[in-house]
Design a protein around this nucleic acid. Structure first.
Length: 810
DNA sequence: TAATTCGCTAGACCGA
DNA sequence: TCGGTCTAGCGAA
């Protein structure tokens, strides 16, 4: 049989049971569309190791003769080596047998099993070193119409543009929610990079361009399904399709007795429950990218910072676009009265357009994660920090022929959670307004410490005498081997090296080019992964958990930043502030910026190779304030202005979402006027004006709204704060408030306590606000700390003079 | 249901 | 009605 070749982008790996054998299926996006290849040579397996102290001996015959329930069989057992220790690799015909066998082998005394919970498809990706979303070349044979994969290798040159499109549905909801048992899908929109299409059943829309009108809902869905099948998408985008659109499609299809098979080769959709309320929708071959899940993932990595996740808020925040919202009630009305159908079409389509736009904005970054962690787009776009780190470590462990540690039991998870350790060092700042500041910080402090001191679970407290007192003895008295490179440092060294290389290339590349944005995404992905490893070490559910390692990292971080501080002072600068990896210093009159640069160089000479103190920047002025309830200066709050008059506000109310706009904006203006020209009189004037505005009752709702997240079920609160009180009142009025949602409330005139006065913004009329509250609890607290540093008191801010008491407002 | 610790501030809550 | 303590949320690194 002749060997053929094909190249393409690896989209997905899955498996199928053919007879008794589990066979891997590789989905490759080739120039001819998605193609699938079978690899039946790859067998499911896990490891079993004799526990040394037990003194038991196991041979091949032992494994092959183990009796398993349900006719399950061990295919083969092979003795091999992992981390220079003998270990048995146990093979199976299929994944069902593997699952049965692992629970039996787990119970055999003296035997320990490993890597038994790695899903088969992922096992394949790891063992074959494949990166989803990257180019590959396959060699295959054609047999009975099936393509049998013989070999698969990376093929970097492959550049096929992926077919990506978004979909969105509108549903009928005569009651509070749409119920897929009764309420039909009204419209379905589809948007790709060039075209938009809307499916509906309203005859009036026949003449509208972009509309495909059907007689019935069933026909509409059928036409949509065949439309999608024709498109052969590589990536299908939705906005919350995991929890809404696709489960709704499933329920409606069941009800209408039809199939909803939009996966590759008309395979069905797979809807999985993950947790109590969350689901996910997955297809074969074609990757489902839920832009909503993706944004949540990106916010966990602080790539995006979003307050509310509804499409309108996101469009505003990311693209500055004011998207019109049509509420469920309005949709019903449009549908019933058949007026405004065109607007509904536009709305439906716009949702798809924006879902697509959001997805495309971050696709490059996600693809880099796929390549690094060797996970498909579906998994990566829904992953947590620990999942990504762990995926990367598992693949590295395979490459280095090291055994992957098992997941901890629930008992050891809770035991681990009891243990805590000390974190970074934060120095109390010198309060006040300062001039001529330099900020230094360590580049990737935690990873560089891990590399420099060879911190890793398996190098911890090694048996060498010499290592006990060498350079890798941590301030917490744990030590790390100096003779053998640790697993974690090896991994991080590689990532750090790659990142430095990419940054060099980035300097050569032209801004705005495709190459530039790819390098940028790669650098960002590497940075995120790099910085997630330290937290992972202290994460109780981590396979590579080590509290001692995490503790050592922070202990050294404290030591290094303190040393920088001491040297700073010894050189004649003043340390204004330290937080974990940064040092703020004041440049005295007799020193220059050049002196700072020289000083940084000097420090770097004494640091280990992987560590690097960087000059973050110079600032014209900086402000630190004292805390509200003490004379101490506040940590983690400051404002800086550089020589281009660019403002940097950190930690203050201005950057917090749980403060009203009126307070935040006024605070920003105050900080800005003070830092720009150092004259506070104008700032005082601004505050007085704002107080007058509040008193007059003219302030608009949008400037009074306070946003706070409801973080638990409403009945689980022991202390009822304003946000909970507002939510409870809203629930009584028939509103549904889920855990995790952000409530927007206003402190109104009616009620005694603040909680009593709190009402959701949507139930409050313009002008109904407690001016006294907003002056004394929002505006003044936000600005007084700052103005106090310049010698002003609260009374100075209040128009009308000092004799008036604060309680006089209202 | 999944990275860490450090830190600030508010408003409720509770007992005198 | 007061002052201290606790609950809660969010941000910095």
């Amino acid at each position: 049989m002749a060997l053929q070749k094909e190249t393409g982008i690896l989209l997905d790996v899955d498996y199928e049971n053919i007879g008794n054998e589990s066979a891997i299926i590789v989905f490759l996006r080739t120039k001819k569309g998605i193609q699938k290849f079978f690899d039946s040579d790859f067998r499911p397996y896990f490891f079993a190791k004799a526990e040394q102290h037990a003194g038991m001996h196991f041979d091949k015959k032992f494994f092959l003769e183990i009796h398993l329930p349900e006719n399950a069989k061990i295919l083969d057992a092979e003795e091999t080596e992992k981390s220079s220790e003998k270990i048995w690799k146990i093979f199976f015909h299929n994944t069902t047998d593997l699952k049965i066998a692992r629970s039996v082998l787990k119970e055999i005394p003296g035997l320990k099993v490993f890597e038994y919970d790695i899903p088969f498809a992922r096992r394949y990706l790891i063992d074959r070193g494949l990166s989803p979303m990257a180019g590959h070349e396959v060699s295959f044979e054609e047999m009975h119409g099936k393509k049998i994969l013989k070999k698969i290798l990376a093929f970097e040159e492959e550049k096929i543009p992926l077919k990506i499109a978004a979909i969105d549905i509108e549903t009928y909801s005569p009651e509070r929610f749409s119920n897929p048992q009764k309420d039909p899908i009204l419209m379905i929109s589809y948007a790709d990079e060039k075209t938009g299409t809307v499916f509906s059943t309203k005859k009036q829309l026949c003449k509208s361009k972009n509309c495909i009108v059907s007689e019935t809902e069933k026909e509409m869905i059928e036409r949509f399904v065949s439309f999608l099948q024709e498109k052969q998408l590589d990536i299908i985008v939705s906005y919350n399709g995991d929890n809404f659109d696709f489960p709704y499609f499933r329920e409606r299809s069941r009800k209408l007795k039809m199939e909803f098979d939009i996966g590759f080769e008309n395979t069905p959709m797979i809807i999985r429950k993950k947790g109590l309320s969350d689901t996910s929708a997955r297809f074969r071959g074609m990757q489902h990218l839920d832009a909503f899940s993706m944004l949540q993932m990106l916010s966990r990595f602080t790539v995006v910072s979003l307050i509310k996740y509804d499409l309108e808020s996101v469009a505003k925040r990311l693209f500055g676009y004011e998207k019109k919202k049509i509420t469920a009630k309005e949709i019903n009305k449009i549908w019933e009265t058949e007026t405004g159908l065109e607007e509904l079409v536009d709305y439906n389509l716009e949702d798809s357009v924006f879902a697509l736009r959001i997805a495309k904005t971050y696709l490059q970054l996600l693809i880099e994660f796929c390549v690094l962690a060797k996970q498909d787009l579906f998994d990566v776009s829904r992953a947590s920090a620990s999942q990504l780190v762990e995926a990367l470590l598992m693949r590295k462990a395979f490459e280095l022929n090291a055994l992957v540690p098992n997941r901890p039991s629930e008992d050891s998870v809770s035991a681990r959670m009891q243990k805590t350790y000390i974190g970074g060092y934060v120095k109390e700042p010198i309060a006040g307004l300062h001039e001529n500041i330099a900020v230094l910080d360590f580049r990737s402090l935690h990873p560089s410490i891990i590399i420099s001191h060879n911190i890793s679970p398996e190098t911890l407290n090694c048996s060498h005498r010499e290592c006990e007192s060498g350079k890798n003895l941590s301030p917490e008295k744990d030590w790390f081997c100096e003779k053998k490179s640790g697993f974690l440092p090896m991994v991080l060294k590689e990532i750090l090296g790659k990142r430095i290389e990419i940054k060099k290339e980035l300097k050569k590349a032209k801004k705005g080019t495709a190459e530039y944005s790819q390098l940028e995404a790669r650098s960002q992905a590497l940075k995120i992964l790099l910085n997630s490893h330290y937290g992972y070490l202290g994460f109780a559910r981590a396979r590579w958990y080590s509290m001692e390692c995490a503790r050592a990292v922070t202990a050294w971080s404290r030591q290094y930043i303190r040393e920088v501080g001491q040297k700073t002072e010894a050189t004649g600068f003043t340390v204004l502030y330290n937080d974990t990896d940064s040092c703020f210093l004041k440049i005295p009159k007799n020193k220059t910026q050049e002196d700072v640069k020289k000083f940084v160089e000097e420090i770097n000479k004494d640091l280990p190779e992987a560590m690097d103190l960087e000059l973050e920047g110079f600032y014209k002025r900086g402000l630190f304030v004292t805390r509200r309830e003490s004379k101490q200066a506040a940590k983690k709050r400051y404002a800086l202005i550089d020589f281009e008059d660019k403002l940097k506000i950190v930690g203050f109310e201005y950057v917090r979402r749980d403060w009203a706009n009126i307070a935040k904006e006024t605070q920003k203006q105050v900080i800005s006027t003070i830092l720009k020209d150092g004259k506070p009189e104008k700032a005082v004037e601004i505050v007085r004006e704002k107080i007058a505005e509040l008193k007059s009752g003219r302030t608009l709702k949008k400037d009074l709204v306070i946003m706070t997240q409801i973080k638990r079920p409403l009945d689980k609160y022991s202390s009822i704060g304003p946000h909970v009180a507002a939510a409870l009142k809203a629930v009584k009025k028939g509103k549904e408030i889920e855990t995790g949602s952000v409530v927007e409330y206003i402190i109104t005139k009616s009620g005694e306590s603040i909680s009593e006065k709190a009402q959701l913004e949507e139930f409050v009329k313009e002008g109904n606000y407690d001016a006294n509250y907003y002056i004394t609890h929002q505006l003044l607290p936000a600005v007084i700390k700052i103005l106090k540093e310049l010698g002003y008191s609260e009374d100075d801010l209040i128009q009308g003079g000092k004799q008036q008491k604060l309680g006089a407002f209202g």
